[in-house]
Amino acid sequence: MAQYRFHSRIVGFFCVFAVFVLFLPAWAAEFPQKDKTIQLMVHWSAGGSSDTGARLIASGLEKELGTSVVVVNRPGAGGQIGYTALSQAKPDGYTIGSTNFPSAISSYLDPNRKATYNRQSFELLALHVLDPGIIAVKADSPYKTLQDVIAAAKAAPKKLRVNTTGIQTDEHFATLWLEQLTGAQLARVHLKGSAPSVTAVLGGKIEVYCGNVGDPQVRGGEFRVLGIMDSERNPFLPGVKTFEEQGYKIYFGSSRGFAAPAGTPKEVVNILSKAIGNVTKTEDHKQKMLNMGLTLRYLDPAGYKKYWDEFEAKMRDLMPLIQKES
């Protein structure tokens, strides 16, 4: 009797195993499996605007894909910890992550940071948000246009103060680009984030504000925005000209996209990319992004790749200037 029971157990085990083997190819084709969770890694702390945007996408993806999508925050080292983890994750589509500019690129362009990944380590899924850079001054400032600021900076080199929100942030690169293009020289002050920068400008400690369209304070009456570093005007700042319109071909800002580890199957990438695209097209999502002041700009993998390469090329061009500051 005992013998029989033992045998039946072995037979049963094999039956289960056979079923597994038989259905395995079918599973691989069917992405995503309903009972598997997709992890969306956000390389910043919970609560920030990168995190909130990603969480909106995650909840939209759940509906779109019919499987659960959880956000996992892996902050640290300006995103480098998260990018490293993403590049080393299993390329099966169940681990994807956010990719922010400029941190995703600057971290591997700077040899001091010894990053173990580069553009080729990721399979790009989609661009989600593009937050263009801006130059602004306090409302009662004598500088009325971008030309005024540049003329002042040329007249007295390294006297006119401009903030960045930290070393190697988009403001740092953008102000370098402005100097490179115009030959003006600014006194760059590296503050920690946009709130101290806004305070410093409002308090008159700094003359020129460099930030993003998404910074809520610039839309109040206390700032005069002089230009947007984008190819088109922005609905959040009606009436503000782009840099291009004013004769300066500068296109910079921070952006947020999504990527999977390199080696993720093409079909899986397409499914995820299309799903993200669908989420961004829903009215609900558009409204929420509007409320957060974020400029939605969906790009498919091919478009995102092109954008990445252009952005990286410009950063490679500017990186030596940062090194030269040292």
Binding site: P75, G76, A77, G78, Q80, I167, Q168, H190, S326
Partner: peptide, 17 residues
């Protein structure tokens, strides 16, 4: 805060911040 270079991090990313 001056150069943005890692200092006393013993090669770990976790200590960069």
């Amino acid at each position: 805060p001056v150069r943005g270079l890692p200092r006393f991090t013993f090669g770990t990313m976790e200590l960069m911040d």
